[in-house]
Amino acid sequence: MRRGRESPPARTRSSRAVREAALGYLLVLPALAVFGVFVFYPFAANFRLALYQTPPYPGLPSRYVGLHQVGQVLASSGFLQSLGSTLLFVVMVVPAGLLIGLLLAVAAHRRLRAMAVYRVIFSSTVVTSVAVSALVFGTLMDPVVGLLPWLGLNPSPPILQNTTWALPAIAVMSVWQFLGLSFIVMSAGLSAVPEEVLEAARVDGASERTVFWRVTVPLLSPTIFFGLVVATIYAFQTFGQVDILIGYSSAAFEHVNLLVYDILDTIEVAKTSGQAAVLSLALFCLTLGVTLLQLRLVERRVHYAA
């Protein structure tokens, strides 16, 4: 049996606090270990790798070249090509994906008959993988068995080999695949708009159109910014469709060499981890930039609202 008088209360509390803290660290540890090994360490390693040039033949030691390699990669025509394609791709996918999602969300945002069915349909593409969307659209666009040629869209060389059409084709399937998420996010944003505010605007005599543009959309803007970031990051990370449908063998490859594909290519084929690290950091900066931009926009809007 423990007896109270033997240990003064202050000591007890500190030992209890130590035990609590130890338990806290223990519980956080598993996740932290995974993050440490597979997120933070490899992320940080990019900064070191970027400074070393990997020789083209395995077995040779890599050479410290400082920022030389960074400049070299960022100025290379390959990177600029890839960056250009990626940005172009973002421009094709993001506005379309968000606008269509918003449109469908607004249309389905009423308590009407059969609305649940429409909602499931509109959200459905969220469960499709890049591989699924690539196969589905690859088939539709196939010059032999596809439907697009039959519908009259049959450029030569075929769409996915075509330097003009390959990127838009990938963009279309990406918009489709992103639509589900876009719809879900927009719908959630719409249901978060308080009904009383809309009713107040209607009572004040605003037309439905005015209510939508002057009340709903401003109130929805945090959601739209959020969607913007999600969509942009999604577009930046696109890889699977290119890998499955284009690949090097395609004549259009140089025009569809999206950044992530370029990174993987540099790792696996060129085996120059230094260059791959530079590309990775470039991708990180793009992602970070978009996120910070969103934070700033939201902040400004909040100030404006207050």
Binding site: R2, R3, G4, R5, S7, P9, T12
Partner: peptide, 8 residues
């Protein structure tokens, strides 16, 4: 119950 319970 007459017993110090500070560290119970």
């Amino acid at each position: 119950g007459g017993r110090v319970v500070n560290d119970v």
